[in-house]
């Protein structure tokens, strides 16, 4: 695993919320703080998993990285280049190098286009390989690489003729044809059956090996994240609660939220019922994010004086493990700088 490929700095994405008449009367402009100040570093060649429950802001983060939604504040550095500072035209090459794969292969393909047209679309958009024959060869190659073999037989078919797994491969081929370096994969296997899922995951792992691709893998499935992820970050209500090596977080979660989440995931090696930490209630409305630690109203160990008042920073608590929680002890004698200070001190 190499150097830092992509860095997310203090990213915030706030959406305007619909106003109630009372709010309108007081001239308030309520916002939904979908992503509320996150920092990430993704290394070249790794699979970085972003996990969390619905509405935690993981998909929005993925889209913001690719400039598919407008951030409120923050910066994305790709190989040191700030993506948000680029003009539209200067950003175009990055559109090609950074690709996205969506969840639902049933709605993300145009039903009226043939597979060849769908896969070649990116080439047309970027004006690559203008020759007809050349373009067809590229499509064949991408289909083959995505595991649709023999590729020729797929060229003139339509999405409805394909199974769910095959459609997801078409989506992947459409991304691959642009020879990307970095792929945001948003729940790419959630809609698929077990055996098909396994095939697609295998394909993604192979692509990383062969092409040295880097992935931001967004999923709600922690078991899957442990299986394929090098590192992961757990999000809750727009913030990162814990981040570090994937397997170590899941085997030994430190943040109370991560602990609870891991404990209730069904397993073939079930934990004893006493070890299950069932949280009460549901995730609060992101319009009204609780003060202090945003997890405190549901946290089994929250302390009034600290957790309800002060937002815990994401700080280093163990080897390579950053946790946002007042109650997780810091290393002995360790003066905690913020994540960025620590990093810059280490590298400079």
């Amino acid at each position: 695993m190499g150097d830092t490929l992509l860095r997310v700095k203090d990213l915030r994405v706030h959406f305007p919320a619909t106003r109630s008449w009372q709010e309108a009367l007081h001239g308030e402009r309520p916002v939904i703080r979908s992503v509320d100040g996150i920092n990430l570093e993704i290394k070249r060649g790794e699979i970085f998993c972003l996990v969390g429950e619905s509405g935690c802001g993981k998909s929005t983060t993925g889209k913001a990285i690719l400039r598919l939604v407008t951030p409120t504040t923050g910066e994305i550095y790709y190989q040191g280049q700030s993506l948000y500072q680029l003009t539209r035209s200067a950003f175009r090459p990055y559109r090609r190098r950074l690709q996205m794969i969506f969840q639902d292969p049933f709605s993300s393909l145009d039903p009226a286009q043939t597979i060849q047209e769908i896969v070649a679309e990116g080439l047309a958009v970027h004006g690559l390989y203008p020759g007809r024959r050349e373009r067809r060869d590229r499509v064949l190659q991408a289909l083959d690489e995505a595991g649709l073999r023999p590729a020729k037989t797929f060229l003139h078919r339509y999405p409805h003729e394909l199974s769910g797994g095959q459609r997801q491969r078409v989506v992947i081929a459409g991304a691959l044809i642009l020879e990307p370096e970095f792929i945001v994969a948003d729940e790419p296997v959630s809609a698929l059956d077990l055996s098909v899922r396994a095939e697609i995951i295998q394909l993604l792992l192979q692509l990383r090996e062969k092409r040295g691709l880097t992935f931001l893998f967004i999923t709600h499935d922690l078991a899957l994240a442990k299986l394929i992820g090098d590192r992961l970050a757990v999000m809750y209500l727009g913030k990162i609660m814990e981040t570090g090596t994937a397997a170590s977080i899941i085997d030994q979660p430190l943040n109370p939220y991560t602990k609870a989440l891991v404990s209730v995931i069904p397993s073939l090696h079930p934990v004893s019922p006493e070890q299950r930490l069932l949280l009460q209630g549901e995730i609060p409305n992101p319009r009204h994010i609780p003060a202090g630690c945003r997890f405190h109203p549901r946290c089994p160990v929250a302390q009034q004086e600290k957790c309800e008042v002060l937002e815990p920073p994401l700080e280093l608590k163990q080897d390579d493990r950053y946790v946002a929680c007042h109650l997780v002890p810091r290393p002995e004698g360790y003066v905690t700088p913020g994540i960025w200070e620590k990093r810059s001190r280490g590298t400079s």
């Binding site: 055996s195 899922r197 396994a198 095939e199 995951i201 078991a223 299986l227 994937a246 397993s267 090696h269």
Partner: peptide, 25 residues
Amino acid sequence: VKLLGASPDIHGDPEEARRVLTSTI
């Protein structure tokens, strides 16, 4: 057996799981 092999398990050994995954159905 194959179906169980294709189900990622939260408390499973990821090395083992990746190995099984390469022999999917």
